[in-house]
Simulated scan of single mutants.
Amino acid sequence: MMAPSWPILLLTLLLSQSLSTLGQEDEEDCINYETNDQYRYRFQLPKFRNDVTRLEFSIKAANDVHIALSSLKEEVRDMYEIVIGGWGNTRSVIRRCKQCTNLVSERRPNGFLNSESFRKFWIDFADSTISVGAENEPAFMVYTDDNPLQVLYVGFTTGWGSNGNFQFCGFGLSQINTCEGETGTISCEPQHSLKIYYGFYGRSNTRVCPNGPTENTDCSARSAENEITGRCEGQQQCTIPASNSVFGDPCRGTHKYMRIYYNCELNPTTILTTTIQTTTGSWSFIILIV
């Protein structure tokens, strides 16, 4: 007698539903940051997912937009440095370390950037090639590395008399912003748990939680990501107050907020197969342990 197929069908339906739920978690808003003219990389973006090899962003600045592609969430000796609109907004370059030899250079007398309006750019870092281009245009700089560096994080800065307003998109993560004094909650569907990609407490722009002093946009608590990850990673639901009592006060007198970027990931599933013998034959069952 043939074993019934409904247990296998049940497994297929459960997995399909879980994958569909994961797809719903991929909606996100763009991340906005404001920078001053101090040439100092801010690593305040989520770690790239394994399937992401492209960075898209918009920038409003007069000159000297710098992007770092690094293996760590900080400046390292060997990292890709991309300069857009340097030398008075006339030249862009690719380097293999901070302020070192220009490996690729592109000149545009009419400039790359605009201090009055956003310009959109993209950077591809698939395999061993770094490509840089503007929206709806082919790459204007391409560099192929015979010994490619690992790219997991992105840093950004302006400098040399230029402030910047950055907008980063395309990380494929869910996010929550919680104003200081309020409580934030993130949660997943059953059989899923939280994976934290980025945690922040402070202020990086004037748009989020504007009801208070917002002038200081270069303010972040160093412990925020570790604190949020420790509380939430692996949980189905997590509640955290956006409070100085949790994270410390990184900038007194500034109205702050908490930002979390996360995904809901399917919990590991144990599949057991058992066979029951009866007088009329044998029946096979699949048992799911989640």
Rank of each mutant, 00 (worst) to 15 (best):
A3E: 11
P7Q: 06
L11T: 14
L13Y: 09
S16H: 07
C30P: 00
T35I: 08
T35L: 12
Q44T: 14
N50I: 06
N50A: 14
E56T: 15
E56R: 14
L69Y: 10
L69N: 03
L69M: 12
M79E: 12
V83C: 03
C97H: 01
Q99R: 13
R108V: 08
F112C: 06
L113V: 07
N114D: 15
F118E: 08
R119F: 05
R119S: 10
F121I: 07
A134L: 12
P148I: 04
L149W: 02
Y153P: 00
G155Q: 12
G159Q: 06
W160A: 10
G164H: 01
G170L: 09
F171R: 11
G184Q: 06
T185K: 13
E189N: 08
E189A: 13
H192Q: 15
Y197T: 03
Y197S: 09
Y198H: 15
F200K: 02
F200A: 00
R203N: 07
N205C: 03
V208E: 09
V208F: 03
C209H: 11
N216M: 08
T217S: 06
S223F: 02
A224M: 05
N226L: 11
T229V: 07
A242I: 02
A242H: 00
T254H: 04
M258H: 08
I260P: 09
L266G: 03
T278N: 02
S282Y: 10
I286F: 05
I287Q: 11
